[in-house]
Structure formats: structure tokens, C-alpha cells
């Protein structure tokens, strides 16, 4: 266990989590500064997704501490964590994340509306983000009618529309070809840097991880911060 680096926005120490007999996390540490892009790498089944879920307050670890902005995540109630996710966090997943019945612009507006923003206003903000991610032409279409790359950009727009301080991306390009994947990564990291958001990027692809500032490796539920080793 290492001490929490000064000035970190989100930091976790000695996280442990088991699903039944399977140990997913076995003493993992993590920290990220505002505006930083950190890749979480490791073989599949190593616990990187679980680490992301714990950091985002989706899953409560069995033990360990997660400090976000000075607040202890593990001590918060479910609804407090939900509220935090709505206001401070954004999410991009590999697939299956857009609501198929809603149009793209409605999908992007959804997090704002969950926060209580009025429909008109939310959709206006959503449209700005769609433009920024170069997919405003599909705003009226449903997710089933757009390409994978477009859909993923819509998802990125949705993750960023609330102006999150931390963006969690779990294999965001997993379902895309390299060209589309790179474009999504470029847009994602550019957008995150411009808003000074931290990005926790879970990936097993080196070319995706190359968009990060540094990486940590998760193996057998334990993490290694490569920067501090070297």
C-alpha cells in the first residue's frame, strides 16, 4: 500500500472485492489527478473493470478506501453515490449503453434530465456536444440506425454533457475498428483535456492506452503504478 499522492482527485487504497469465491480485487491502489488520463491495463479477468466500478461508486468494495475530492465513497449511501455519479462522473462503455428507444439527442440529454434539467435546455446542451463530436447529423436517429463509431461518439457526448470531473471509459473502442477507435479516442481525450476532466480508461489495447498520460497495470487483482516503479 502506498500513500495517497498529494493533489489527487480520486484515489483508492487497498481495495478488496470478491464475487463469491472469485477474488476480483486483492489490494489494488489507484490515484488520478484532475485533467489526467490514466489507462488501466491488464489481462482479461484481472479485475480492471471491477476496479473501475469501485472507483465510480457503482460497486462497493469489501474493504479499502476510495477518496473522491476529500469524500470517502465507501461511506456514502447508494443514493448519495447515484447522485455523485449523475453530477460528477461520466461513463462510456463498450456497447449496449444507448437507450435504443430514444433518439441520439435524447440519449445525450438523458443525464442532464436525470439531474433535473428541463428537456429543452438539456437537448440544446446535448446538441452542442454532438456537434463537438461531429455526430450532430444523426441527432434525430435512433441508436439502432447509426454506425458503431457514431454510436460510440454519441456515448462519449452523453458522458461529457454533464461536465463531469471524472470520465470512466471501459473499453470505449472495443467494438470499433482501429480508425474509428482512434478517432473516438482523440475526440474523447481532447474533450476531456479541454474540460480538465480526469479520465479513467480501462483497456487492454496498447494503441488505446497510448492516448493516456500514464498507465497502471492490474494483475490478479493487484495494481501496479508503472510511473512510480520506474
Amino acid at each position: 500500500m502506498s500513500p495517497v499522492p498529494a493533489g489527487s482527485l480520486l484515489a483508492a487504497q487497498d481495495l478488496r472485492k470478491a464475487y463469491g469465491p472469485t477474488t476480483a480485487l486483492d489490494g489494488a491502489d489507484f490515484s488520478i489527478h484532475p485533467g489526467e488520463v490514466v489507462a488501466v491495463m491488464g489481462p482479461s479477468g484481472s479485475g480492471k473493470s471491477t476496479l473501475l466500478h469501485c472507483l465510480a461508486g457503482i460497486v462497493t468494495p469489501d474493504s479499502g478506501s476510495i477518496l473522491y475530492n476529500g469524500r470517502e465513497l465507501t461511506a456514502m449511501s447508494d443514493s448519495e453515490r447515484s447522485a455523485l455519479r449523475r453530477s460528477d462522473f461520466g461513463f462510456v462503455f463498450q456497447f449496449g449503453q444507448l437507450v435504443p428507444e430514444l433518439t441520439c439527442v435524447e440519449n445525450v440529454a438523458l443525464p442532464l434530465r436525470l439531474n433535473g434539467t428541463r428537456r429543452k435546455e438539456a437537448e440544446r446542451a446535448a446538441l452542442t456536444w454532438l456537434e463537438r463530436l461531429e455526430v450532430d447529423d444523426v441527432r434525430k436517429k435512433r441508436p439502432g440506425e447509426v454506425s458503431g463509431g457514431q454510436g460510440q461518439r454519441v456515448a462519449v457526448a452523453r458522458a461529457l454533457v454533464t461536465g463531469p470531473r471524472v470520465l470512466f471509459a471501459d473499453e470505449p473502442t472495443g467494438a470499433l475498428d482501429s480508425l474509428n477507435g482512434e478517432r473516438v479516442m482523440e475526440l474523447l481525450t481532447d474533450a476531456a483535456r479541454s474540460t480538465n476532466a480526469a479520465v479513467v480508461l480501462v483497456t487492454h489495447e496498447a494503441r488505446v492506452a497510448a492516448y493516456s498520460d500514464r498507465e497502471i497495470v492490474v494483475r490478479d487483482g493487484r495494481s501496479r503504478d508503472m510511473e512510480r516503479v520506474v
Partner: peptide
């Protein structure tokens, strides 16, 4: 299922 989990991830209330 996956969609529901995603919605919960970005903070949708279970009540909603």
C-alpha cells in the same frame, strides 16, 4: 440487462 446496468452506472435512480 446491460442497458439497465449502464443507466444505473450513470446515476439513474432505481425509482426512475
Amino acid at each position: 440487462r446491460k442497458l439497465l446496468s449502464t443507466l444505473v452506472a450513470f446515476g439513474t435512480r432505481r425509482r426512475t
